[in-house]
Each structure stands twice: as C-alpha cells, then as structure tokens.
Write a protein that binds this DNA or RNA. Sequence first.
DNA 1: TTGTATGCGTTATCAT
DNA 2: ATGATAACGCATACAA
Lengths: 335, 335
Amino acid sequence: MVTIKDISLRCGVSSATVSKALNGSKEISEETAEYIRKVAREMGYLPNATARALKTKRSNNLGVLFIDKTQSGLAHEYFSKILNSFKVEAERSGFDITFISCNLGQTRMTYLEHCRYRNCDGVVIASVDFYDPSVIELVQSDIPTVTIDHVFDNRTAIMSDNVSSVRELVQHVYEYGHRKIAFIHGEDTSVTQKRLASFFKTCEELGLDIPEEYIKPAIYHDPESSRIATKELLSLKERPTCILYPDDYSFLGGMSEIEKNGLQIPNDISVVGYDGINLAQVLRPRLTTWKQDAEAIGREAASQLIKSIEMPKTYIPQQITIPGQLLIGNSVKKL
Amino acid sequence: MVTIKDISLRCGVSSATVSKALNGSKEISEETAEYIRKVAREMGYLPNATARALKTKRSNNLGVLFIDKTQSGLAHEYFSKILNSFKVEAERSGFDITFISCNLGQTRMTYLEHCRYRNCDGVVIASVDFYDPSVIELVQSDIPTVTIDHVFDNRTAIMSDNVSSVRELVQHVYEYGHRKIAFIHGEDTSVTQKRLASFFKTCEELGLDIPEEYIKPAIYHDPESSRIATKELLSLKERPTCILYPDDYSFLGGMSEIEKNGLQIPNDISVVGYDGINLAQVLRPRLTTWKQDAEAIGREAASQLIKSIEMPKTYIPQQITIPGQLLIGNSVKKL
DNA sequence: TTGTATGCGTTATCAT
DNA sequence: ATGATAACGCATACAA
C-alpha cells in the first residue's frame, strides 16, 4: 500500500507538502504540485479513507436506514429506485453508503449507536416505523438526517405528494363517470392517513357518499391482503365500480381475484393503482396509476443530506414535495 | 464522544489496560476487567470503528458489488433477497456492508481501487458482467471475494443449481405429456449457457426434437422482451404447448400477451417460470416454477466470505451449489 | 512556498 | 497483571 510518506520520499519533499498538493491546496506551487500528482499517479496512490476519516472526523459515508420487514423493503421497486438514485447522487459527491441496522455482532446497538460507531456523516431514513424510539433518537441526535415520506420537526423530509395524487386519481375516475369508488389502503402510517384523508375530502367535494364497507385495510406491497380485500368488495350487494389499490404491486393480488371471479378489467370493474412500477405498465390492460418520481426523491434526499453535512451552519431544514404524475392506462372504464 | 482514554482516566488505569479489558484479553484480571466494562457501559462508550480499522487493517466492512443496470438489480426479488440474507449474516458476525461502484466523486476508480480506498475486508460479487476487466481485476486481487452464479478459478462461488433445475422442470412438463416445449432464455451469461445446455441435454435424453424457433432470446427480469418472444411463439404454425420463461417476473409479460390473444393458462397453453418469487405464487393460476433458495445463497456467501477473511491461511476456496426446489402450481396442463 | 510536529482513537509491543 | 509508548495514514497549526 502506497502512502503519502512513500510519495514524499520519492519526491524529496515533506509529507505535509504531498498532502497539501494532493488536496489541491493553494499553498503549494503549481509546479511542485503537478510533479507530486504525477508521481502519486505513477505509484498508484490511493488515499486511505480510514486514516482520513480519523483525522478529519468526516467519513464520507452515509448511513441508509431502510427496514426490510417482510423482506419487501428492497424488493419494493419504489424503495429500490429511491435507494439507487440516492446512491448515485451520493457517489457523485464522493460519499459511500452503509446500511444501518440494530444488531451488529453479538452487541445489540441502537441505530444512533451504529451510526456513531461507523462515523456516518448523515443518514437517510425510509420505510421504517417512524414511531420507533430508536428511530426518533437518531433523528433527534446531532447527526444530519433526511427522512422520506415522514416529517420530523426541524428536520429535512422528502415527501411524495400523497394528498394531491389521491385527489387527482379520484377526480379522474369521477370524470369517467364512477360514483361507487372503493379504496383499499395500506397499514396505518402518516402516508396512509394523508391518502385516506385526501380520498374522503375529495369525495366529499365531489358530493360522493362513500359507504364504510368500501374502505378496506390491506398491507402495502402485499398482494395477498389486497386480494382478500378485493374478494370482500366483490361480494358486496352494492359492488363498487372502481377500486383504488394501495400500490401497483398489491393490485396484482386483486387482479388475480377479479379474474378468478370471471370479471374483466375494465369492462366489469375498473381499477387504479399507485406507484407506477414498470410491471404494471407492461400488463394489459395498462394500469391507470400514479407515477411517483422515485428517482427524484432519492436524488433530492442525497442532495439535501449532503448540503446539510457540508454547510451545517447555514443549512435550513425543509420539507420538499416531489410531484408525481397521473398515468392514464386502460384500467378505468368510461361509464 | 467518549474514548478509551476517558475510561482509563475514570478508572485510574492505563488506556492499554482498558483496551485489553474491552477486547476480552486474558491478560487482564477478571475483577478489573469487569469494573472497566461497567464504567464503559455507564459512560456510553462506543468503539471507534475508524480508529480501530486504521490500527488493525481490518475494517469489518464488506463490499457489495451488485450492478444495477436497467435499475432492476435491487428490484429483482432474487437479488434483493440474496443481499438481505447476506447482510443479516454479515451483521451477525459484526460486519457492515458498503456498496462498491466505480465512480466516486470526480475521480473514476476501478472496483478494486474503491475496495482498497474503503479497506473492505472482502467483497461479494453478483449480477455483474463477470467478463468486465475491472471485475476480473478485483477477483484476482488479494482481497477475498465470493461470487454468486459465476465461477472464477481458485475463488469461492455460490451457485444456484441451473443444470438440475432445468432438467427437473423439463422432466416435469414431459411427464405431464408435453412434447412441444419452447424455451425463452435470458441474455448470454454462464447461467444462461448452463440452463440452455441442460434444456437441450434433457430434451435429447427424452427423445424430444426441439425446433430452433422454439428457442427465443429475451432479457432477464424484463417482461417486455418475454412478451415479444411469447408473441412470436404464439404466431408459429406449430405452436408449442408449453413455454419455459427466463424468470417469473418476465413471465408476466408473456402472461399479458397470452391473455391478450384470448388464450387461457393452462388450458390453451402451459407455462413455467423460474425463481419462485412471491408474486407468482399469489397470481391464479399459480405458476409452476423453480424456487431458488436465495436466502441460503446470501447467507452462505456471507459465511464463506467471512471464513476466508478470518482464516486466510487455511481457507480453501470452494464452489457451493445451493439446491432449489420444484414448485408445482397450476400453470402446466396434463395433456 | 515548504517543512516540523502533533494528534485523531485504537491496538500492539515491550517493559515493569 | 498492568503500563508506557509507538504506530497506523493523514491533515493541519505553526514555524521557517
């Protein structure tokens, strides 16, 4: 392993000079700096991130706290896209990514402890139980954090547009003539609460009276629970003409149930998804859904997090909403 | 931040003693060791991974080289499961995980350089172009590596059972009376080559003569390409009675095409998938497929990698095949 | 413009 | 059984 010292000996200068030259310090004359860089290149020098981190207290390492309960966390296209664009943007600024968890070796540690142990410069938090005390402890610490789809006071949050999205979806099916609209929602989170509230509000504004049995609980990214909810909806005396699903992936469970009942989409029943995953756009009929801009969410999260790390004094936490768009497929029939 | 020195002052012993006590050295008397541990706990001491890594040359950090081309890498349930179980097993042994890529900041580096820069103790490699010179450079370096689904000489590889799986699948549909079996395969990799060879060999053994137009290329995890391949197969004069797909996810593209043609699975045409992803088991009819033990693959990869790190002298690289199992659904009709 | 010296927190060697 | 000390590779305050 070639170190700064090796270079300094070869160049006949001090290690301090080499360090400065390599870091582009203005102190060093362009001539020697150029020479040092050349030698460093020739010798195949690579900075030692560990030593640098120990000295500077900056690891250039970002923690990623994604919970993989039901191991759907990363398999979830929405989150895997966010992670990927987060990673790309982070790397563009020279940051690496480390997963944060709570059991390392035999010693159980909190998320915060794990971050400190690894000297993470910042953490992005998504897809977790935001009421978990260990998550709250992390967010309230001095480590910069960015959360996705959940707001903490005086912390940056990147939000998908859960209110306007559901409003637009409901308005869309309303315009297509639907009045009996069912809503299958995910587990109780602030995202779900927002979507539900937006659903009720929009329906109210449109003068729709949605019976209670049109609202069914399910679990995000779990086709089976949406299949069951679908089954219940289909067995109602007053069957809805359109069903809104928690997400595209869950819809596939519903789709299966609908087809099993010999019904056709959209002729016999209309459906709407959420997320805009690739798969749903490949199936026929194409699913009408809300396309979230996961790529922008991840990129923005990284960008904000890095800003807050690099300008700790002047950075102002903010809530940023990333707009998505209505994707009109063929799964909603005009009545 | 509380350091070893802080503890040593508080305990009235030297920092060397604290370090030894905390690391369970036999040199220290049980009595003082216990006291030191107690104080450390009270003070909320956390070891500094950075300082430790600098001193010991061990980062307790494993690199993960997964290429996310077409951003399906992590969205791919097979790989995301592997990654997750790898992570869980690694953490059980006190290792963290860092993604390896080739462009960090403005400086482009090779995978090997990235690993060195981060002092990775080892790397797991999957879902990449194994003929990429930068990948080969990494594998041939002194950094321990484990590859998944590709063998390098004198290196550990964890393999799914591509040969026996395809044999069993073909035998299965053969037993159900199918003779006209089409095979849609993924892009050209050693995995694909193995599956194709196994397909041809099994067919030969069974006395089946598969016409060339029954073999269609597609792309793994890309429903659209499998949809096109399906379309071509369905338009043949001599239409196959059964289609084998590259993977379950790709099958969904084919499914869509089949249904668009007004055909029913399995009455009009039989289909077989590969991977055994959750989704395919939720749809009706349930897909007959090969369930890969992704969880075991990831776990074994981590376990082997860590062994090779901890016992560099005695560890012997090996190829380990993780068996999967035939999952019989309702997508293959008995003829 | 360049060099010297120090310390980041830890572990390891060698004394005691 | 415990302690003093050096060293890991780097960055920086300060001196020259």
